[in-house]
């Protein structure tokens, strides 16, 4: 999909009006690009020696002229395949990387010129990188982060006890971080990133490697945080569950470019025009692929077909199966994961 999929931007229903009566974008990105200079080396020891005297570099455009805005209180999924430019974008938004080109405004602050001021407004959780000191306990870590953000001790204590109630931290709050399970660590990372009550929370793959129970706990908490404290959430994740359960809007990035910026509702509406029909038959039937019908599985008495609703209705598809021979039937939507993968693949073409 070479051209950008342009779909009307759906304004979030929960937007807040600022004092002047205008809708307020908390994140504004215009024409943002980032190019990395990557050293190239030929194979083997010969290549290593050659690279000393005649180094070769290649420019890699990780992010290529992207623009978008995020409204206050929104939960946005910023997704894309590996190497698409998600983390690079998030790192530019949080002041970690300097952009090659473009403008960023986070809560009215430029991350590159006012990094320290920005830090008070944002919280960051990087699923693949720990911010906690592993030889300290979560409690000491929270106190340390509180002091870094110049928060009075009694306020830090109050916030720790608030999060303690939500996450039942008592069980492990005095155990050195290195001895915690991955789930416990991630919960502590989230608590540490919220100790200064930021306006925006950047979550870069927060549920990576976690079990379903912890994932659910984190999702419920993020939703609650967004609802109660109006914290804007900027989420990147490969877990469709995170996106589906949390986000109202999704931006898909691939090869450094935005290929889709739409609401979850519209995404499902536009892409869910296919149904999966799984049927258990009492006798073997010979079904031929017809217009709008794709046979996914045909084994013994079990049949799985995909019906393209723009070409064939479900009732017509069932008629083809012969309803009298059906023992059991299940009709489901195409999983969101499949939809997103097809968008990734489509944008590559």
């Amino acid at each position: 999909m070479k051209q950008l999929i342009h779909i009307e931007i759906y304004m979030n229903q929960e937007l807040e009006e600022d004092k002047g009566g205008f809708y307020m974008s908390i994140i504004e990105v215009k024409g943002l690009s980032k190019t990395f200079r990557v050293k190239q080396k030929e194979k083997g020891i010969k290549g290593s020696i050659k690279a000393i005297f005649k180094p070769k570099y290649k420019s890699k455009k990780a992010v290529n002229d992207i623009s978008f805005s995020v409204e206050k209180g929104e939960i946005l999924a910023f997704i894309g395949p590996n190497g698409a430019g998600k983390s690079t974008t998030i790192k530019m938004l949080t002041g970690i990387l300097y952009p090659t080109k473009g403008d960023i405004s986070i809560s009215g602050i430029c991350p590159q010129t006012d990094r320290k001021k920005l830090a008070y407004k944002i919280g960051c959780v990087f699923g693949q990188k720990e911010q906690l000191w592993i030889h300290l306990t979560p409690y000491d870590n929270f106190k340390f982060f509180g002091a870094i953000y110049d928060i009075p001790e009694e306020v830090v204590e109050k916030r720790i006890s608030e999060y303690n109630e939500i996450f039942e931290l008592d069980e492990f709050i005095n155990t050195p971080v290195r001895s915690l399970s991955l789930g416990q660590r991630m919960i502590c990372e989230i608590v540490a990133s919220l100790i200064h009550e930021p306006e925006i929370l950047f979550l870069d793959e927060p549920t990576i490697g976690l079990d379903p129970v912890i994932k659910e706990k984190i999702r419920v908490f993020i939703k609650r945080l967004n609802k109660e404290k109006k914290t804007t959430i900027f989420l990147t994740s490969h877990d469709v569950g995170d996106i589906e359960k949390l986000c109202k809007r999704v931006i898909i990035i691939n090869d450094g470019k935005i290929v889709l910026d739409d609401t979850m509702e519209n995404l499902k509406y536009h892409y869910l025009n296919k149904k999966i029909v799984e049927a258990k038959m009492n006798t073997k039937i010979n079904l031929d692929e017809a217009d709008g019908i794709t046979i996914l599985k045909d084994k013994d008495y079990n049949l799985k077909i995909e019906v393209d609703l723009t070409k064939k209705s479900i009732s017509d598809a069932i008629k083809l199966l012969d309803p009298d021979k059906i023992i059991d039937i299940n009709i489901s939507n195409t999983p969101l994961e499949t939809i997103i993968s097809s968008i990734y693949k489509g944008s590559k073409k």
Binding site: G95, K116, Q131, I148
Partner: peptide, 9 residues
């Protein structure tokens, strides 16, 4: 350095 760059110091 990521962890230090997101801190207000």
């Amino acid at each position: 350095l990521d962890a230090y760059l997101t801190m207000p110091k």
